[in-house]
Design a protein around this nucleic acid. Structure first.
Length: 472
RNA sequence: GGCGGCGUAGCCAAGCGGUAAGGCAAGGGACUGCAAAUCCCUGAUGCAGCGGUUCGAAUCCGCUCGCCGCCUCCA
């Protein structure tokens, strides 16, 4: 497969270095508030990516996503609400994991906290101070960008370029406006840890270097995050990695596009944001996945209620097909005839085209298109297939579920009903068929209506009446 | 000022030099006692505009117009 690599600015062929395990690091949340709908994009996109690598390439994926639980924003928020920083961090860390669960997102292989790696960060910073890659000023420590010839290699901007722009505020403490903070001296009341430079806390850019190395070791395959992190965050990570080791850092840098509200990027400081949990109050998780993955991950995505409704309709059409097939084939176990086998032979091409799209820089939109075409194919077969071929629909439905899995779509509902329930419903359907044959429609409709009231929906098809239970 | 992105039918959107996927919405038809669902049919002679390269361009190059992002914490 090939992936667009921000580091090389080109589509590069990708495979894990050791041939079997992919080490992946995705920048996670700063837990000072609930995740907003923009934060959800990398969570969904890279989780889908992880699932795809595991299921369709057979690679094991070690997926690390950090939790930043000490930071200026957290301190500020705590001061506003009167809570302690750790309490605030715990509260929103819990909310973050609850959101992952609600979305049906897999838990990361590891979710390292910044506060659990203070010692290691101090070690790394000490190393940079020792070699002159960093310098100390009144209890603060800064990275010295002038010592790094390759600074700017990720974001494609030279030091000269940026100084010319000079939008960066010049601090009298820094040697260069672009020098960034590695360690920040604590003010009274702020969270603090002892260090060789006095009490303080680490800067944001150091934690990801320490935690990715610690949890991935040599498997630094992919580093991912929003494209707003390219500069300065990821640039600064690379600079620190280069300053502290000769070993190569991440080979692939993947960046998702921003979520827009109308014409603008959504941003808390603009006040045009919405919390992610609000969306789940109105829409199923599956709808949310479909919406986010129906646009290529590198492009900006316009958030809209209409978009979500369109996604819900698209998901619903596939869901109904799968539900109908499940209901129709309930209990049957036969071998398809010639026409059925021919139909199944045609299906392989859909899987191939799906993989082709997904392997091409994770083109989930193309993948979704293939699934929709597959659904159309199944529907056509379903409309004309003879009875002894219909069992082929089961394998077709399985294929839809297989292709949908990485995208968080079309997985079977948890089965809650009991066999006796199914038998009772079958009995009622039988009675209703008898009544309809006698043209006693009023009584027949009453059975259907009463069942609908308790969540059992009947549908009369050319192959007889099928039923399914509606999720409450 | 530097770096980068986007503009494809009513709406969303793929496409990466070989003759415009897919979804949503809409209309017509079939099926049906009624429901619900499904199936079939109908769509861009054209991909912001103008030039250029090519046998061939939505796709490459140049210019123009419009929109957006990063360069400061931000997914």
């Amino acid at each position: 497969m090939r992936l667009y690599n921000t580091l090389t600015r080109s589509l590069d062929p990708f495979a894990p270095q050791d041939g079997s395990t992919v080490g992946m690091y995705v920048c996670g949340p700063t837990v000072y508030d609930h995740l907003h709908i923009g934060n959800v994009r990398p969570v969904l996109v890279f989780n889908a990516f992880r699932r795809y690598l595991e299921r369709f390439h057979g690679w094991r994926v070690v997926y690390v996503q950090n939790v930043t639980d000490v930071d200026d924003k957290l301190i500020q928020r705590a001061a506003e609400t009167g809570e302690s920083v750790p309490a605030l961090a715990r509260k929103y860390t819990d909310a973050y994991f609850a959101l992952l669960d609600a979305l049906g997102v897999d838990r990361p292989s590891a979710s390292p906290r910044a506060t659990e790696h203070i010692e290691e960060m101090i070690e790394l910073i000490s190393c940079m101070v020792k070699t002159g890659a960093a310098y100390v000023r009144d209890g603060d420590v800064y990275f010295r960008v002038s010592r790094d010839d390759e600074y700017g290699c990720l974001s494609g901007r030279s030091l000269e370029d940026q100084e010319a722009g000079s939008r960066v505020e010049v601090s009298d403490r820094k040697e260069n406006a672009l020098d960034f903070t590695l360690w920040k001296a604590a003010k009274p009341g702020e969270p603090e840890w002892p260090s060789p430079w006095g009490n303080g806390r680490p800067g944001w850019h150091t934690e990801c270097v320490v935690m990715s190395r610690k949890h991935l070791g040599e498997r630094l395959d992919i580093h991912a995050g929003g494209n707003d992190l390219v500069f300065p965050h990821h640039e600064n990570e690379i600079a620190q990695a280069r300053a502290t080791s000769d070993k190569p850092f991440f080979r692939f840098w993947l960046h998702n596009g921003m979520l827009h509200m109308g014409e603008q990027e959504m941003h808390k400081s603009l006040g045009n944001f919405r919390y992610a949990y609000e969306i789940l109050e109105k829409h199923a998780a599956e709808t949310v996945w479909y919406f986010y993955l129906s646009r290529h991950y590198r492009k900006p995505l316009d958030f809209s209620e209409e978009g979500l409704e369109g996604a819900a309709a698209a998901v619903g059409r596939v869901r109904r097909l799968l539900d109908d097939v499940d209901a129709e084939l309930r209990g049957s176990a036969a071998e398809p005839g010639t026409a059925g086998r021919e139909f199944l032979d045609r299906l392989g091409a859909f899987r191939e085209r799906y993989v082709q799209a997904m392997d091409d820089d994770f083109n989930t939109v193309g993948g979704l298109g293939v699934i929709q075409e597959l659904v159309n194919e199944i529907n056509r077969f379903r409309a004309e297939a003879r009875d002894d071929d219909r069992c082929a629909l089961r394998a077709a439905a399985e294929l839809v579920r297989e292709l949908g899995y990485p995208l968080g779509l079309f997985q079977p509902h948890v089965q809650t009903g009991r066999d006796s329930e199914a038998e009772l419903i079958a009995l009622l359907i039988e009675l209703r068929a008898e009544l309809r044959a006698r043209k006693e429609f009023a009584l027949g409709d009453r059975i259907r209506d009463r069942l609908a009231e308790i969540g059992i929906v009947l549908k009369d098809t050319a192959q007889g009446t099928i039923w399914k239970s509606e999720a409450p």
